[in-house]
Amino acid sequence: MRKYLFRRLLQLVPLLIGISLISFFVMHLAPGDPTALFIDPNVKPEELARVRANWGLDQPIYVQYFLWLKNACLLDFGRSYTTGQPVINEIGQRLPVTLLLMAPSFLLTLLITIPLGVISAVRKGSWFDNAVTFLSFAGMAIPTFWLGLMLMLLFSVKLHWFPAVGNIILPLITMTIGSLAGLTRYQRASMLEVLNQDFIRTARAKGLPERVVIFKHALRNALIPTVTILGLTLPDLFGGAFIIETIFAWPGMGRLGVQSIFQRDYPIIMGIVMISALLIIIGNLLADIGYALVDPRIRYEKSK
């Protein structure tokens, strides 16, 4: 297991380098010189040259990349163009606010999706299953931002239950529904597959009550792929945060990101891209470890 962990950690290195390369490349898609954006155009050329040298902009591009990479490794992504604050401080303030929204949504999703998928699979073809299947399709097809607007329309404008902004309930519901649909379909499918396995018949033939067959023997197996898929849905969860936070004016990293895009605050944008990618990778790594922990076949193979 330790060796497996070490190997997985080692695999992260090229991944992170790749991510930084793409981030840097995207940053240099930006038209013109970053200095042009917020330095007084009437400033003396020698002054401009000094600033450019200061920022390393007079260096060849690969030198700039290594400079940026070196700083990024120390979590220094430069300073925001708009506030002048270090990017890492700006993000550091906003990230917890985003996690405050994402963590409960993640938990809520798990608490709902697993029983829903399991019951749907066990009662395959029942009205309950049909309803769950239809709603999951609808949930996958609904644009997240529009769902947010509709919830706002219903609960804030019509019913006056929650304020449209500044309250966690509506963004939480929006985010949860967004991730619920796909996962429920997945959970149902994996449960259905397990229920068709021979060892379920064995469990029944042993005289285990159906409750034990389903919640012990089947569910333990059906959760194995769920762990992986949870890791894979992390990018969507982050992606959702950008839009949901914007609609509900939730002051997290997502809203900061969208604002920065409109203000062309490239250091912030790049910092957020890097930080979210890093969190996603860590999430995937945790999912892989979780996978190895719940599946003895992998656990033993990997420990060899």
Partner: peptide
Amino acid sequence: LAFPSIFLILA
């Protein structure tokens, strides 16, 4: 796959 694609696209 490690990027939140919507933000990459926005950027």
